[in-house]
Amino acid sequence: RLGFCQHHDDEVLHLYCDTCSVPICRECTMGRHGGHSFIYLQE
């Protein structure tokens, strides 16, 4: 089961930031992890 983002309370962690080695949400890709390399996580 996927968890929720600690920075965006209502967002599920659907992605993994390869650059930072952390799970991220959709909102994170447009903010603090913008321009980073990421992949989609599987449930």
Rank of each mutant, 00 (worst) to 15 (best):
1 R>L: 03
1 R>Y: 14
1 R>I: 09
1 R>M: 09
1 R>A: 06
1 R>W: 03
1 R>H: 15
2 L>P: 03
2 L>D: 11
2 L>H: 05
2 L>Q: 09
3 G>K: 12
3 G>Q: 09
3 G>D: 08
3 G>T: 03
3 G>S: 10
3 G>N: 11
4 F>L: 06
4 F>C: 07
4 F>R: 06
4 F>K: 08
4 F>H: 02
5 C>M: 00
5 C>G: 01
5 C>Q: 01
5 C>H: 03
5 C>P: 01
5 C>E: 01
5 C>V: 01
5 C>W: 00
5 C>D: 01
6 Q>L: 09
6 Q>S: 10
6 Q>W: 04
6 Q>N: 09
6 Q>T: 10
7 H>R: 07
7 H>K: 12
7 H>L: 07
7 H>T: 08
7 H>E: 15
8 H>I: 04
8 H>F: 05
8 H>T: 08
8 H>K: 07
8 H>Q: 07
9 D>E: 11
9 D>G: 12
9 D>K: 15
9 D>V: 12
10 D>P: 05
10 D>I: 03
10 D>A: 09
10 D>L: 04
10 D>K: 14
10 D>G: 13
11 E>V: 09
11 E>F: 07
11 E>S: 07
11 E>T: 11
12 V>L: 11
12 V>F: 11
12 V>D: 09
12 V>H: 13
12 V>A: 08
12 V>P: 08
13 L>M: 11
13 L>S: 14
13 L>T: 08
13 L>Q: 09
13 L>F: 05
13 L>H: 03
13 L>E: 08
14 H>A: 08
14 H>V: 07
14 H>M: 06
15 L>Y: 03
15 L>V: 07
15 L>H: 10
15 L>Q: 12
15 L>P: 04
15 L>D: 06
15 L>A: 09
16 Y>P: 01
16 Y>T: 04
16 Y>R: 13
16 Y>I: 07
16 Y>C: 02
16 Y>M: 10
17 C>E: 01
17 C>L: 00
17 C>D: 03
17 C>T: 01
17 C>P: 02
18 D>I: 04
18 D>W: 03
18 D>L: 04
18 D>C: 10
18 D>Q: 09
18 D>T: 10
18 D>A: 09
18 D>H: 13
18 D>F: 03
18 D>Y: 05
18 D>V: 07
19 T>A: 06
19 T>M: 07
19 T>Q: 15
19 T>W: 05
19 T>P: 07
20 C>V: 00
20 C>W: 00
20 C>T: 01
20 C>G: 01
20 C>A: 01
20 C>M: 00
20 C>R: 00
20 C>Q: 00
20 C>F: 00
20 C>E: 01
20 C>K: 01
21 S>C: 10
21 S>I: 02
21 S>V: 04
21 S>Q: 07
21 S>Y: 08
21 S>M: 12
22 V>P: 01
22 V>M: 12
22 V>R: 08
22 V>T: 15
22 V>I: 05
23 P>A: 12
23 P>Q: 15
23 P>T: 09
23 P>L: 03
23 P>C: 05
23 P>S: 08
23 P>M: 05
23 P>F: 03
23 P>Y: 03
23 P>V: 06
24 I>H: 02
24 I>R: 02
24 I>A: 06
24 I>W: 01
24 I>F: 05
25 C>P: 02
25 C>N: 00
25 C>R: 01
25 C>T: 01
25 C>F: 01
26 R>S: 11
26 R>I: 05
26 R>L: 07
27 E>I: 08
27 E>R: 13
27 E>H: 06
27 E>W: 06
27 E>A: 10
28 C>K: 01
28 C>V: 02
28 C>G: 03
28 C>S: 02
28 C>F: 00
28 C>A: 02
28 C>Y: 01
28 C>W: 02
29 T>D: 06
29 T>V: 07
29 T>M: 13
29 T>W: 04
29 T>E: 15
29 T>R: 14
30 M>K: 13
30 M>L: 12
30 M>H: 14
30 M>A: 14
30 M>D: 14
31 G>F: 06
31 G>L: 08
31 G>Y: 10
31 G>A: 10
31 G>P: 06
31 G>N: 13
31 G>W: 04
32 R>A: 13
32 R>L: 15
32 R>K: 13
32 R>S: 12
32 R>M: 08
33 H>Q: 01
33 H>D: 01
33 H>P: 00
33 H>V: 01
33 H>M: 02
33 H>N: 00
33 H>K: 00
33 H>G: 02
33 H>E: 00
34 G>A: 11
34 G>K: 12
34 G>S: 13
34 G>F: 04
34 G>C: 07
34 G>V: 12
34 G>M: 11
35 G>F: 03
35 G>L: 05
35 G>H: 05
35 G>R: 11
35 G>Q: 10
36 H>A: 00
36 H>G: 02
36 H>I: 00
36 H>C: 11
37 S>P: 11
37 S>L: 06
37 S>C: 07
37 S>F: 05
37 S>I: 11
37 S>W: 03
37 S>H: 15
37 S>R: 12
37 S>V: 13
38 F>V: 12
38 F>G: 05
38 F>R: 08
38 F>I: 10
38 F>N: 08
38 F>K: 07
38 F>Y: 12
38 F>Q: 07
39 I>R: 15
39 I>G: 14
39 I>M: 09
39 I>K: 15
39 I>H: 15
40 Y>Q: 15
40 Y>L: 09
40 Y>K: 15
40 Y>V: 12
40 Y>R: 14
40 Y>A: 15
41 L>F: 13
41 L>A: 12
41 L>S: 10
41 L>Q: 12
41 L>M: 09
41 L>Y: 13
42 Q>C: 09
42 Q>V: 10
42 Q>W: 08
42 Q>P: 14
42 Q>I: 07
42 Q>T: 14
42 Q>R: 11
42 Q>Y: 04
43 E>G: 15
43 E>V: 11
43 E>P: 05
43 E>W: 02
43 E>K: 06
43 E>D: 15
